[in-house]
Design a protein around this nucleic acid. Structure first.
Ligand code: MN
Ligand code: MN
Ligand code: ZN
Ligand code: ZN
Lengths: 144, 144
DNA sequence: AAATCTAATGCAACTAAGTTGCGATAAGAT
DNA sequence: ATCTTATCGCAACTTAGTTGCATTAGATTT
């Protein structure tokens, strides 16, 4: 069940006339391969391993590009750095281990209690949760 | 229904033998008065308005102290800065306006859909949500 | 295959949030 | 009033991310 989104993303980019640089393709591949959202720093490390040594500026600019193109989503667990995952993934949530930082994907089901029970059965010991809703407040809806 | 936590917190600190400095008391008062979680920068601004001009280092150290004493909780919406609110507040969640940054407290009820409907009635237009569960993964439970 | 166009890159310098070491100050006990 | 030490101010540092500008390299054209 671990389908790859790589080919589709690359095709779309080519169709839209964007260049397929080594770094661009490698970043998509790493995000596709990764089982958890990656930080800019982690990406730089993975690219270095592959023999590519892009400057951090380029990686940040590539991330900005991919956010614009809605290829990736930015997320932030309360670390100092942002993390990124492919936008093609179905909407889901995360369970994060407070000790080792391991991140597990969680399907978005309706009830909070429900999800916590499910995690319990998987032996993940939930100690808290964080829920945020994003959108437009009343006054910001009017002025748009 | 806007009860104050100030007196209780101050009493506890005194009982435990901590010093009641001007800045310490002012920070608690500002967090108590604020209707939304405050960042370190916002706190520094509020203190300046009151005639206190503490160095940012002192404010950060005070925040660290209050986290240790569990007087405040750290939270982070995907901004670059952290935010803090009184730990004495009942567990709840937040609705954040993507335009003006306004933050509204949301009671922690069971269903996600339920909360979104409630926000809709209050004219807050939800465009997305973020849910994270924190705890211990299987292997980190064993090694503790 | 070479010339061309310009998106993407590298570098240096910068910003913003937060941290650390250390000597000075002030809260509160005696 | 004096003393003790928790707290503070300052300078210097760190880490994540950003910006301006000159250079390089994908892709297209010749
Ligand atoms: Mn995920
Ligand atoms: Mn709140
Ligand atoms: Zn773990
Ligand atoms: Zn708003």
């Amino acid at each position: 069940m671990k389908r790859s989104f790589y080919d589709g993303i690359i095709r779309d980019l080519k169709d839209q006339g964007f260049r397929l640089t080594k770094v661009r393709m490698a970043i998509i591949e790493e995000l596709d391969r990764a089982k958890k959202p990656l930080s800019a720093g982690e990406l730089i490390g993975l690219l270095k391993k592959r023999g590519l040594g892009p400057h951090k500026t380029s990686v940040y600019r590539e991330i900005a590009f991919m956010l614009e193109q809605e290829i990736i989503n930015r997320l932030s667990f309360g670390e100092r750095q942002d993390r990124f995952e492919l936008a093609a993934l179905e909407h889901h949530h995360h369970a994060i281990c407070k000790v080792c930082g391991e991140i597990e994907d969680i399907a978005c089901s309706e009830g909070i209690r429900q999800i916590e029970e499910m995690l319990g059965k998987q032996k993940f010991k939930v100690s808290g949760h964080l829920i945020e809703f994003f959108g437009l407040c009343t006054s910001c809806q009017q002025s748009s």
